[in-house]
């Protein structure tokens, strides 16, 4: 058995909101799970805070880590559909 354990990921999208479950991922331990969650689930500036939980333990990223964790995706404009100029007369895009 070489599979990494499954973690559930919770993201707080904005200050003042609850953390919301956004999905799952695999990681070999809590620290890797937090980093994997950043890479997998916050590629579009989605979160300001991440929790990962394996069974009954919850681990949260600290607010201090906000900069290196989230800043890098700030300029990835090509990820956003509105970045592509499609003329208005092309339907269904």
């Amino acid at each position: 058995m070489t599979e990494w354990p499954l973690y559930e990921v919770f993201v707080r999208g904005k200050r003042g909101l609850n953390h919301v479950h956004v999905g799952s991922l695999h990681a070999s331990d809590d620290q890797m799970a937090i980093r994997n969650a950043r890479d997998v689930y916050t590629r579009r500036n989605e979160g300001v805070s991440i929790w990962v939980v394996r069974s009954d333990a919850i681990t949260a990223s600290s607010p201090d880590e906000k900069d290196p964790l989230f800043a890098p995706s700030g300029d990835k404009v090509y990820r956003h559909p509105t970045f592509y100029e499609i003329p208005d007369n092309v339907p269904h895009m």
């Binding site: 993201v11 707080r12 999208g13 904005k14 003042g16 909101l17 609850n18 919301v20 479950h21 956004v22 579009r44 500036n45 989605e46 700030g74 300029d75 990835k76 404009v77 956003h80 559909p81 509105t82």
Partner: peptide, 23 residues
């Protein structure tokens, strides 16, 4: 819309947002 609550109804923020920083 299970993700609605993530952005206070502003679901544009995560897939369609335009609020990037021009470095």
């Amino acid at each position: 819309s299970p993700y609605e609550g993530l952005f206070g109804g502003d679901s544009d923020h995560w897939a369609f947002g335009t609020d990037f920083d021009d470095p």
